[in-house]
């Protein structure tokens, strides 16, 4: 995913990318390579996306990545994605077959005689994964990642297939943990608590909890709507109206606030 790193400047990125590989977005060479049965196969598939892996069957990181790819492979139909393993003729092909089988990764194994393709693409690293579309354009290049390799590869394939947009790809390449410590979330808990108390008939406590929620998240239409509707339900329209008006100001489509307001119509001048 040497396409961009959030937080680094574009100048740095430009220098970082493409130094050890052909550039993403360019048409790559498409040689015929011999398969294990000796028959020749083109690298680029004109009907399907091709995911290719340069690997050394004895290298631990290659095996680690192959296991991760094996876990991902079943998510993509064979009609859409072709998986190719490219192995130098310096390596024992039997070991390449065993490595792929043990990783649970179904690969069409092709031999790179004299590392010609490796050299032409300036690969330099094992493992290296490339994604090339039906027009022969390199869509992504991923060397080894200890963290987030599967997430990045999954997203790159889906992006190349048109299943996700640029924003979704960016989120996958720069993922984050779920943020559950927000004021909004805390207010949400208080609202659920208030609802349960209301159902149990403990109206005063329910109103108090809803008020706490509105205090924690003053920008929450849901909090003001619940507080206002409970106040209205308790017959205190004078205190309910400002809360309901605030809820409708924050969210003019808030159904709960609108209904509660009907029970507390504005009095005449």
């Amino acid at each position: 995913m040497r396409r961009g790193v959030a937080g680094f400047t574009p100048v740095l990125l430009a220098l970082t990318m493409g130094l050890a590989f052909v550039k993403v977005g360019t048409v790559i060479p498409n040689p015929d390579l011999p398969g294990l049965d000796g028959s020749e196969h083109a690298l680029v598939d004109r009907q399907r996306l091709t995911v290719f892996l340069f690997f050394d069957p004895a290298q631990p990181r290659c095996l680690e990545v192959m296991r991760e790819m094996g876990g991902l492979q079943g998510s993509f139909p064979k009609e859409k994605v072709r998986w190719v393993g490219i192995v130098s003729d310096r390596f024992d092909p039997a070991k390449a077959v065993t490595a792929a089988r043990e990783a649970g990764l179904g690969l069409e194994l092709l031999t790179d005689r004299g590392d010609q393709l490796y050299g032409a693409l300036e690969v330099r690293l094992y493992p290296t994964v490339g994604i090339v579309d039906t027009k022969g354009v390199l869509r992504a290049y991923l060397p080894y990642h200890k963290v987030n390799f599967t997430g990045a590869l999954d997203a790159e394939i889906r992006h190349a297939l048109g299943e996700i947009d640029d924003a979704a790809l960016e989120r996958a390449l720069h993922p984050q943990a779920a943020d559950i410590g927000t004021k909004q979330a805390e207010a949400g808990r208080y609202l659920r608590f208030a609802e349960m108390l209301w159902k149990m008939g403990k109206r005063d406590k329910a109103i108090a909890k809803a008020r706490e929620a509105a205090g924690i998240a003053p920008g929450s239409a849901a909090a003001h709507a619940l507080l206002g509707s409970y106040l209205a339900g308790a017959g205190d329209c004078e205190k309910a109206r400002p809360e309901l008006e605030k809820a409708l100001q924050l969210d003019p489509d808030n159904e709960q606030a609108r209904k509660a307001m009907e029970a507390c119509p504005k009095q005449g001048p």
Binding site: V147, N148, F149, G151, R171, A172, P175, Q176, A177, A178
Partner: peptide, 11 residues
């Protein structure tokens, strides 16, 4: 929960 391996908070 996280979207990053090993439940990391970020990359």
């Amino acid at each position: 929960a996280s979207n990053v391996d090993s439940l990391l908070l970020d990359l």
